[in-house]
Computed example of a mutant assay.
Amino acid sequence: MRVYHFVNKEYGIQDLQKRRLKIARLHELNDPFELFGVEFSNEDIRSAFHKMKTELTKKRGLICFSKSWHNPVQWSHYADKHQGLCFGFDIPDHHLGEVNYSRKRLVIDAERLKNPGNITFSFAKRFLFTKYSHWSYENEVRGFISLDKETEEKGLYFLDFSDSLKLKEVIVGSESDITRQEISDSLSGYNINVNCFKARLAFKSFRVVRQRKESLWL
């Protein structure tokens, strides 16, 4: 599956140079309802899910992608107001899960939470892939990654580019001052063909599209 990851200039250039993406932790995400898409009127359910989130944050992180790079809102929110970058990756489908967007909180039977053994990652996956419907413009897919010493650096966690995270596109934001040379230098020695190009705002729609005039990207 071809998926897209938005990032600002500073971290985007670092990602290219070091061939990796940062793994986000559950408590770092910008949606406070992450894992909390459940109806919480029952105190036992509230308590169980807060504990579950705490435990999952210690063991797993995630990387979020979109199935499209054309939405200007995502460029504004996640790529520093169109000044950053968007990476296109080819990732095996079985490593990703599509987010389900819902207008209503999910209902769960509190009895299932009485046994702590029921609170497993497989049990939590339904809730980890559910978000409020107003986020649907992101068209999100996400991958969950186990946190271990191999992915850790100074308290942060990263996932290296690989056959399961294969960089195929680098898209430079329409308002970005990132040059061709900067991208070329950052990709120096990378032995996979990467399609690099500049974006622009569409003339007839509210979309971000490819800049076809190569001379306008220095």
Rank of each mutant, 00 (worst) to 15 (best):
G61L: 09
S47I: 00
K67S: 12
G189V: 01
S136G: 06
D109F: 02
R19M: 06
N195Y: 08
E98G: 15
S47G: 03
V141D: 14
D148P: 02
I119F: 06
M52G: 07
T57G: 04
I108Y: 07
G189D: 06
R2N: 15
Q74P: 04
G61H: 07
G97C: 07
E153V: 11
E140K: 11
H82I: 06
D93C: 00
L156W: 10
E153W: 09
V170F: 13
S146E: 15
H70D: 13
K67G: 14
G155H: 05
V3W: 15
F49H: 06
K149W: 02
K67E: 15
F49C: 03
K154S: 10
R112I: 11
T151P: 11
I171L: 15
T54A: 05
C64I: 08
N115I: 11
L62I: 15
K213C: 12
S133P: 05
N195W: 05
R19L: 07
G88P: 10
T179D: 03
S66N: 02
I119Y: 00
E43R: 13
R25I: 09
I23F: 13
S66C: 02
S184M: 09
R105W: 05
H50V: 01
N100M: 02
F49Y: 04
M52S: 02
H5V: 12
I119N: 00
S102Y: 01
I145N: 00
G173Q: 14
S164P: 00
Q17V: 01
Q17F: 03
Y132V: 03
Y190S: 05
F36C: 08
A110C: 04
N195L: 12
P116I: 10
E138R: 01
F161Q: 10
L165V: 12
S164G: 02
A110W: 11
V172N: 09
E175T: 00
R207L: 10
S41H: 02
I178G: 06
G61N: 04
Q83R: 15
D177N: 10
W217A: 14
L62F: 14
L29D: 10
K168G: 01
R200S: 14
V208C: 02
E169W: 11
K53Y: 07
P32Q: 09
F127Y: 03
V172I: 15
K104D: 01
G61Q: 13
K213A: 14
F197T: 13
K149L: 13
Y137I: 04
D185K: 02
R25N: 06
N139A: 13
K81Y: 12
D44V: 08
F144V: 11
V3D: 15
Q181R: 07
S205E: 09
D160C: 06
K104Y: 02
R200Y: 14
I192H: 10
E175S: 13
T179K: 07
L147I: 05
V209R: 08
V7K: 08
K22A: 11
P116G: 01
L56G: 08
E150S: 00
N115P: 09
